[in-house]
């Protein structure tokens, strides 16, 4: 009897492993191994071209902290991540609240907002460049109306807002669709009851809508925040990190020092900082938001 039980446990263990291993092995052999390799490179002075590799310990990590470019890229990345996430949330919650009413146009609007999800960031970048270049379409219109021209992508104070605008434009549709689904899951009776109790629209929003949206808020926020932290394509196509490094996010910086300047090891050290940072933030965020969710629901 005990032998059979043991065999059963063994069988279950074996079968669990059988289900687990294929997917995890492929992931581990490519992605995890790459991260480990990047860490390994970060301890050397490899340039990616020559065969010589000298061990330098954590010198590349110290070097990053001393470099204004690294600190600047942190600032830029957080600018995009914090303001972008906040804007996307506010806009998509408001849009979904507007859309969550009976009306035959709802489907049309939802499709319109979702369209930007369908095309590549490269394509989006090129379309918006034709809009926002100094001699682009927007300035042509401003000129026709006799208004002063604006250098949306060439002015360091403005370029990051332009990039932010384009990213919000792209991501909001995603948030809207998810919040809309969250809203549609709220039982209508709750609102009816609140109306009978004499609650005004704002009270109804804070006491019913917002708490019920909490799970969507968590996933949208974490998903979008980490997405912003990784942002590369938009910046690459729109500004390449300029002007004066004002849009140089960490991902752009890593590519620049690794690929343009042939400092693969140094770039790897920056990537390691990046990985730890994003990992810590998203875990803290998930933890915090999930707890808030529980508080709100109870």
């Amino acid at each position: 009897m005990i032998g059979r039980l043991k065999r059963n446990i063994n069988t279950i263990r074996f079968q669990t492993a059988l289900l687990f291993v294929p997917g995890f092995a492929i992931y581990a052999c490519i992605i995890l191994l790459s991260i480990v390799l990047a860490f390994y490179y970060s301890l050397f002075d490899w340039d990616g071209v020559r065969n010589s590799m000298n061990f330098v310990g954590f010198a590349n990590y110290v070097r990053a902290l001393r470099q204004p470019a690294f600190l600047n890229s942190l600032k830029v990345t957080f600018f995009f991540a914090v303001i972008g996430t906040a804007l996307v949330n506010v806009i998509s919650i408001s849009l979904s609240a507007q859309l969550n009413r009976p009306g035959n146009l709802t489907n049309f609007y939802r499709s319109a907002f979702f369209f930007p999800q369908l095309i590549s960031m490269v394509a989006i970048g090129f379309i918006f460049k034709s809009l926002f270049s100094y001699i682009g379409i927007v300035n042509a219109i401003l000129e026709r109306w006799g208004l002063p021209l604006v250098d949306f992508l060439g002015d360091p104070a403005l370029a990051k807002w332009t990039v932010l605008f384009v990213s919000v434009w792209q991501i909001t549709g995603f948030g809207t669709v998810i919040y809309l689904a969250g809203l549609q899951a709220i039982p209508q009776e709750l609102y009816d009851a609140a109306k009978i109790d004499g609650a005004n629209p704002w009270q109804r929003f804070t006491s019913i809508t917002f708490p019920w949206l909490a799970p969507s808020l968590t996933s949208v926020t974490v998903f979008i925040f980490t997405g912003y932290m990784r942002m590369f394509d938009f910046i690459f196509v729109l500004t390449g990190g300029g002007p004066v490094n004002s849009t140089e996010s960490i991902a752009i910086l890593v590519i620049r020092i690794g690929f343009n300047q042939f400092k693969i090891s140094y770039a790897s050290a920056v990537s390691m900082y990046f990985l730890v940072l994003v990992g810590a933030i998203s875990m803290a965020m998930t933890y915090f938001l999930r707890r808030r969710e529980e508080v709100l629901i109870n």
Partner: peptide, 19 residues
């Protein structure tokens, strides 16, 4: 040094944009 155009570009951009 490889990639010196990166820093040239950053300096000239700072001059062009007066920042």
């Amino acid at each position: 040094p490889s990639g010196i155009t990166d820093v040239f570009q950053s300096v000239i951009e700072a001059i062009i944009t007066q920042t």
